[in-house]
């Protein structure tokens, strides 16, 4: 079943001059159609300004389309009222961990979403506990968010999403401001939630290393969808990726160079182990 259905989406940012007339219209998203299946882990790759964040913000109605329609669980996102029925279906994690934590303690922050939904107190307590457990942050329940590391803050934000019981979690470059350890923490947490809870994940990034385990990769360039396929398939089209200003992981590039030099290797190698195995089998 398709949980997200994007049809011919166009979004223009309008710039007004001093008299309030339209001076310039910038097409951030230019005719994108995309469907996401329930339970899928989909990665949206793209260089800065490729329109990937703008695209994601249409799914939970933070932005409304200039043209086209977005459906989430059968709801027409732009027209559905009340709007929070859409937003509780699709949670969103943002780039800056500091700017999305509202509560003065971890548990208060996790409760913020369901509090807005009007969940009764007893149920709230249960949800906070379960969500923190799932995000691996149960030990920090009463801590102040200011004292946590970046990766931990993002996991608090993830717990805050889980407490709303969404079907989809949209992640808008959640790892961009984190150190390697924090990046790994966040990524592993999301994969676990995807596998165990069946939550659909839309993961936006420009780091290709982070998306090798995704079910599907979508590549965006100048507001258009240019590639759409399994990681192996996308990673084997190195030249096209280069045109999108994306750099494939070193292993993938090394394998491609070796292949060019005449070795019999498969296309789109995703991990060091895979390359080692392929090389050992050569003789």
């Amino acid at each position: 079943m398709n949980i997200i259905e994007i049809l011919n989406l166009v979004h223009e940012y309008r710039e007004l001059d001093e008299e309030g007339n339209e001076a310039e219209a910038l097409r951030a998203v230019d005719g994108v159609s995309l469907t996401v299946e329930e339970g899928e882990f989909i990665a949206i790759l793209g260089h800065n300004g490729s329109g990937k964040s703008t695209l994601a913000k249409h799914v939970n109605a933070l932005l409304t389309p200039t043209e086209g329609t977005v459906y989430l669980s059968g709801m027409n996102v732009a027209e559905h009222k009340p709007i929070w029925e859409v937003r509780r279906e699709a949670g969103m994690i943002f780039q800056n961990p500091d700017n999305q934590i509202i509560g003065t303690s971890v548990e208060e922050d996790v409760a913020f979403g369901p509090e807005n939904m009007g969940i009764p107190t007893e149920e709230l307590l249960k949800r906070v506990e379960v969500s923190l457990e799932k995000a691996g942050m149960a030990a920090y329940r009463l801590h102040s968010p200011n004292k946590l590391s970046g990766g931990q803050k993002q996991r608090v934000a993830i717990a805050g999403m889980l407490a709303m019981r969404p079907k989809v979690i949209l992640m808008d470059e959640p790892t961009a401001m984190l150190d390697p350890v924090g990046r790994k923490e966040v990524l592993e947490t999301m994969h676990e939630l995807n596998r165990q809870e069946g939550i659909t994940v839309v993961f936006i990034t420009h780091y290709m290393e982070e998306v090798v385990d995704a079910d599907r990769i979508v590549v965006m360039k100048d507001g258009k969808l240019v590639m759409n396929g399994a990681p192996r398939e996308v990673f084997s089209r190195l030249e096209e990726l280069e045109e999108c200003h994306l750099t494939a992981p070193e292993v993938t590039r090394l394998a491609a160079e070796l292949k060019k030099a005449g070795l019999d290797l498969p296309d789109g190698v995703l991990s060091v182990d895979e390359l080692v195995n392929a090389l050992c089998r050569l003789k």
Binding site: R88, N96, I102, F112, G113, E115, P120
Partner: peptide
């Protein structure tokens, strides 16, 4: 910039003012 981000994050978490809001520790 932070205020803008925060407003987005609050909206994404269904914030719509104080009506019908419940509390973790009432």
């Amino acid at each position: 910039r932070r205020a803008d981000d925060l407003a987005n994050a609050m909206e994404a978490r269904c914030y719509h003012g104080g009506d019908d809001r419940t509390k973790l520790h009432p």
